[in-house]
Design a protein around this nucleic acid. Structure first.
Lengths: 138, 138
DNA sequence: AGTATAACCTAGTAACCCGATAGGGTAATA
DNA sequence: TATTACCCTATCGGGTTACTAGGTTATACT
């Protein structure tokens, strides 16, 4: 299940991608238009800035803005930052791998093989979609 | 993320699928061989029995056994029972649908469209795999 | 200079879920 | 009749989630 945090983050990024000329957008404006708690959104956008997706400008007329072009932002990278692993099981995660405490052998694990298939198909979808693909919606 | 419950459940089902002639297997045996807490496993197998996947036989030589053929058990149905929704967001779930409290329109939601794609690709994988496919492992 | 604006930072919290454990009850079999 | 193994309830620590409160710092406008 996708957390609200990730969901809100994607929606906010998508909103910003629609702004002409990378103009800064205030947290309050995004919160209002997307029905998100402003304080909660603040912490999410801050995290996205620290991860290199957004730039910020303080003071009047300030706000957050996209640093890169929407076409260059894959959904895999966004989700990995906000949500963490994409895989359904740590033992098949590429970026957050962790060995199972049970399971003597991964090759012989029935769950393992299945979840690799799921991971790959999900990765394909999220890797093919960029922020630009999402932002056409509205 | 897949819960341990689901993971253990699948492993247990997979173990039972390998038994010749649908013979009953004791909870203790599965727990031992798969490194699962026996009491925890008990509750999982109980749930699987109530959902119609397993039958149970009490007394000496008893245990749990598969009711249907492994080829007939799709992984979608197993996961839906143990884990719940397969979709990453309730608003794209087929079996556990729930409207988002934010989001005035689903058609216009950027997350919605993306998650439908993810759901469909996952559903394809999990629908094509049956318990028989998993049980060849080991 | 002064004030409004908006990002930034630090905490904290209520609610919830997960994995596991404990302890016993009940039904079927040898 | 004793044993085996399923069945049920209850609880509990630990962790995460979603969200709130309140203050600080940087920028812009007058």
């Amino acid at each position: 299940m996708l957390s609200k945090k990730t969901k809100y983050g994607i929606k906010a990024l998508s909103y910003m991608a629609k702004q002409p000329e990378h103009e800064p957008v205030q947290t309050s404006e995004i919160a209002r238009s997307q029905n998100i708690s402003q304080k909660f959104l603040e912490s999410i956008l801050l995290e996205l800035r620290k991860s290199g997706f957004l730039g910020a400008k303080k003071g009047k007329g300030g706000g957050y803005y996209l640093i890169k072009e929407p076409e260059e932002i894959k959904m895999t990278s966004v989700i990995r930052v906000l949500e963490g692993p994409i895989a359904m099981v740590p033992c098949v995660s590429l970026n957050y791998y962790e060995k199972c405490s049970d399971c003597p052998s991964e090759e012989k694990c029935s769950v393992h093989a299945l979840m690799i298939q799921v991971r790959d198909s999900t990765l394909k979808i999220l890797g093919d979609n960029t922020l630009a693909d999402l932002a056409v919606k509205e």
